[in-house]
Nucleic acid binder design. Structure first.
Length: 642
RNA sequence: GCCGACAUAGCUUAGUUGGUAGAGCAAUUCAUUCGUAAUGAAUAGGUCGUUGGUUCGAUUCCGACUGUCGGCACCA
C-alpha cells in the first residue's frame, strides 16, 4: 500500500488485517498515534484499508484526538454500567464539545450520584485490562439479532442502511460508527461529572433517559486544567457576582421576574444612556409603546396563533388584551400612524421595549432566561435600494458595540427555507446577496446556515464569544416580509404609487437582562469605569483628621458627575481597601496627611497594586478621559478571579 | 413542562442509628484612629422553605407543594 506522509510517498506491506501496516507506520512516525486520516476521512488505527491516498496521523495533540478519546470513554462507561447494572438499556453515547455523555434507560432504578463513583471505579478496572477496541462489520440482520433486547438500538439499526459496524472491547460490544482509540488502556484520565435527564431522540414526547456526563483527557494535567476552567466559570457566575455586588435579585414571589438593585440599576442606566447616545448618532428615532395591547393586534400580527401559550393575557372592560411578547406590532402602529413618503425612509424606530413571555419554569436561569425583559429593539423601514447601506451601517454598529464590551463574535446568515416561505424569490435572493456581501466585506468570521431562515425572511445572528470561550447568541438582524404585509404598511413612492417598505428587526444586546448577565461573567464583575456602578471609593487614613478633606473631595468628584462613595468606617485601612477591591471598584483613593498637605490624591486602580499620587485636577482629568474613552477596566481574557 | 438533586441566621455553611441547632463573614455596641486585601471584645440574629403524615417526640423518616440548581424539551 502506498501512503503520502509529510509530502513523501511511502510504501508499506499490508499485514493480516491492515492494522499491522499502520502499527508499522506508527512505529515509523514515532508518534503517539490513535487513529489516522486518509484523504481527510478518519479511521481507527485497526481499520483495514485498501486504497492509497494522503495519510495523516491523529496523535494525541491533534484537534480530533480529544473527540475520539471522549467517544471511546463513553463506550468504557457503557461497559462499566453494563457490568454493574446488567438490565440497563443503552441508547446513544456520543462525544460532545467538552466531553461525552451516554443516555441510558435504567428501568425502574433511579441512578444516584454515589453510583457514579462505583461506575468510575469499574471503568478504571476495564481501562487497566487494556483490551483492544475492535471494529467489526456486520449485516443488518446480524445487528438486529445482536441487539434484539434493546429497543433503542433496534430503532437506530432500522434507520441505518448499508454497512453496520459494532465495536468490541472484551465481551462488551456496542453499535457505533467509530472512530475509537486502539485500546481501553488509552483511557486513563476521566471523570463522571453529572447526572441529567434527556429525552430519547431529543423529543419531549418520548421517554426520558438518564444521561451521564463525563470528560476524558490524555493527561492528568489536561483534566485538571479543564476542571479548573469550570471552577473559574463558577466563580464568574453572574448569579453569584450579582449577589456579591448587589446587582439584582429574584424573589420567590416572582420566579423569572428580576429585581434590579441599586448597583445593577446604575450599571444598566449607564448602558442605556450609552444606547440612547448611539441611537441618536446612528439616526434612530426612539419611541416607547404600551406593554398591554388588545388581542386583535396579536391576531393580526400572527403572534397569537403561534405563541398564545407563552403570552400573558388580561381582560379590560370585557375585552381581551395581551402583554406584549414583542415590540414589532407596536412599532408598526407608529409607522402606520402617518402617511409615509419615500423621502421619510429609511425610518429607524428604536425602543427599549419591555416584553413578557411565559417561559417554562424549568427554563428559567438567573438573568439569562427570564419572563420579563427589555430588548434594545429597533425596526428599520426602508426601500429596497436602501437595504445595502442599512446593513453595512448595522454591521459597523454591531462591531462597535461588541468591541466596547470586550466580546468577540461571529456572524451566521440563515437563508431561505426550502418550503413554507413567503415573499418573492427575487427579494429573497437579492437580500441574501446583500447580507452575504456585507458580512464578507466586514471581514468578520462568517458562516451560512442554508435554509435556516424564518419563513418571513433571512436573518443574521451574532454569536458572542466571552473570555471563557462560551458562545452566546445575542444580536440579530432579521428581514421581515411578513408583518408589513399583514399590517399593510406602505409609503408613497416618487411616482405617486403606494409601495411596501422592507422591514428590518434588529437587536444588538438582545435583552438588557441577558446581556448584563453575559458581561457580568465576561468581566467577572470588574465593569469598565464608564458603566461601573461605583467608580471611586475614598478612604481617609484617619477619619478624625482626614475626613473633612475626604468629604470635600467626594463632593468635588460628585460635581463632576462621578459615582463616588466615602468609606470612613471605624476600620483599618487594609480592611477598607480589601472591601473596595472585592467590590471591584475601579479607583480607590487613599487620603492621608500627604494628600491633605499637597491637595492631592493617591489612587490605586482595581487589580493593580501600584499607588500613584496626582493632584485632584489631574485625577479628574484622568477619570474623565477613561470614562470618555470607555476603556476596559481589566482585560477579561487575562483577568483571574480570586 | 420533564428527569434528578438541593432548601439550616442577611451571606457561606456544620449538624447520621429521630431528643427543637453550632461556626465564619456581615450587622449592632464598645474599645481602637490605623498608609493599601481581614484590629480586638461583647451583643443580637433561626417556627431548620411551606404543608400534611409516621412517632411519646421530626431540622433529621415519608408524601405533597413552592423555589433554586444540573440537564432535556422550548426560546417569536
Amino acid at each position: 500500500m502506498k501512503f503520502v506522509v509529510d509530502g513523501k510517498s511511502i510504501e508499506l506491506e499490508k499485514g493480516k488485517n491492515g492494522m499491522d501496516a499502520l502499527l508499522l507506520v506508527n512505529e515509523a512516525a514515532k508518534k503517539d498515534v490513535l487513529a489516522y486520516k486518509l484523504d481527510g476521512q478518519e479511521f481507527d488505527l485497526f481499520h483495514p484499508i485498501e486504497k492509497e491516498g494522503k495519510l495523516e496521523f491523529i496523535n494525541k495533540d491533534s484537534p480530533e484526538a480529544f473527540h475520539i478519546l471522549n467517544h471511546s470513554t463513553s463506550h468504557l462507561l457503557a461497559q462499566a454500567v453494563h457490568a454493574l447494572f446488567p438490565n440497563a438499556l443503552f441508547a446513544i453515547g456520543p462525544a460532545i464539545e467538552d466531553g461525552f455523555y451516554y443516555d441510558i434507560d435504567f428501568g425502574d432504578y433511579v441512578l444516584k450520584e454515589e453510583d457514579l463513583k462505583k461506575i468510575e471505579d469499574k471503568m478504571k478496572e476495564f481501562s487497566k485490562k487494556n483490551e483492544y477496541i475492535i471494529r467489526e462489520v456486520v449485516s443488518k440482520e446480524k445487528a438486529l439479532e445482536l441487539f434484539k433486547d434493546n429497543p433503542y438500538k433496534v430503532e437506530l439499526i432500522n434507520d441505518l442502511d448499508g454497512e453496520i459496524t459494532i465495536y468490541k472491547q472484551g465481551d462488551w460490544f456496542d453499535l457505533c460508527l467509530g472512530v475509537h482509540v486502539p485500546s481501553t488502556g488509552y483511557i486513563k484520565h476521566f471523570k463522571l461529572e453529572t447526572l441529567a435527564g434527556a429525552y430519547w431522540r431529543g423529543d419531549s414526547k418520548n421517554k426520558q433517559l438518564t444521561r451521564i456526563y463525563g470528560i476524558s483527557c490524555f493527561s492528568k494535567e489536561d483534566l485538571e486544567s479543564k476542571e479548573a476552567l469550570k471552577e473559574e466559570a463558577k466563580k464568574r457566575d453572574h448569579r453569584k457576582i450579582g449577589k456579591d455586588l448587589g446587582l439584582f435579585m429574584i424573589s420567590e414571589y416572582g420566579p423569572g421576574f428580576p429585581f434590579w438593585l441599586p448597583n445593577g440599576w446604575t450599571l444598566r442606566r449607564n448602558i442605556e444612556s450609552w444606547w440612547y447616545d448611539i441611537s441618536d448618532k446612528y439616526g434612530y428615532k426612539v419611541i416607547n409603546t404600551p406593554i398591554i395591547l388588545s388581542k386583535e393586534l396579536w391576531i393580526t400580527s400572527g403572534h397569537w396563533d403561534h405563541y398564545k401559550e407563552n403570552m400573558y393575557t388580561t381582560k379590560i372592560d370585557g375585552r381581551d388584551f395581551a402583554i406584549k411578547p414583542m415590540n414589532c406590532p407596536g412599532s408598526i402602529l407608529v409607522y402606520n400612524s402617518e402617511l409615509r413618503s419615500y423621502r421619510d425612509l429609511p425610518l429607524r424606530l428604536a425602543e427599549l421595549g419591555l416584553v413578557h413571555r411565559h417561559e417554562a419554569s424549568g427554563a428559567l436561569n438567573g438573568l439569562f432566561r427570564v419572563r420579563c425583559f427589555t430588548q434594545d429593539d429597533a425596526h428599520i423601514y426602508c426601500r429596497e435600494d436602501q437595504l445595502e447601506d442599512e446593513i453595512v451601517t448595522l454591521l459597523k454598529l454591531y462591531n462597535l458595540t461588541y468591541t466596547l464590551f470586550g466580546l468577540d463574535y461571529s456572524i451566521v446568515l440563515s437563508t431561505r427555507p426550502e418550503t413554507g416561505y413567503i415573499g418573492s424569490i427575487d427579494i429573497w435572493n437579492k437580500s441574501e446577496a446583500i447580507l452575504t456581501k456585507a458580512c464578507q466585506d466586514s471581514g468578520h468570521e462568517f458562516k451560512i446556515n442554508p435554509g435556516d431562515g424564518a419563513f418571513y425572511g433571512p436573518k443574521l445572528d451574532f454569536k458572542l464569544k466571552d473570555c471563557m470561550g462560551r458562545v452566546w447568541q445575542c444580536g440579530t438582524i432579521q428581514l421581515d416580509m411578513n408583518l408589513p404585509e399583514r399590517f399593510n404598511c406602505t409609503y408613497i413612492d416618487k411616482d405617486g404609487t403606494k409601495k411596501r417598505p422592507i422591514m428590518l428587526h434588529r437587536a444588538m444586546l438582545g435583552s438588557f437582562e441577558r446581556f448584563i448577565g453575559i458581561i457580568t461573567e465576561n468581566f467577572a464583575g470588574a465593569f469598565p469605569c464608564w458603566c461601573a456602578p461605583v467608580q471611586v471609593k475614598v478612604l481617609p487614613v484617619n477619619n478624625n483628621i482626614h475626613d473633612e478633606f475626604a468629604k470635600k473631595l467626594v463632593a468635588t468628584l460628585k460635581e463632576h458627575k462621578f459615582r463616588v462613595e466615602l468609606d470612613d468606617s471605624d476600620e483599618k485601612l487594609g480592611y477598607r481597601m480589601r472591601n473596595a477591591q472585592m467590590k471591584k471598584i475601579p479607583y480607590t483613593l487613599v487620603i492621608g496627611d500627604k494628600e491633605v498637605e499637597n491637595n492631592s490624591v493617591t489612587y490605586r486602580r482595581f487589580n493593580d497594586e501600584k499607588q500613584i499620587s496626582v493632584s485632584i485636577d489631574e485625577f479628574i482629568k484622568l477619570l474623565s478621559k477613561e470614562v470618555e474613552e470607555k476603556t476596559l477596566l481589566v482585560d477579561p481574557k487575562n483577568y483571574k478571579v480570586n
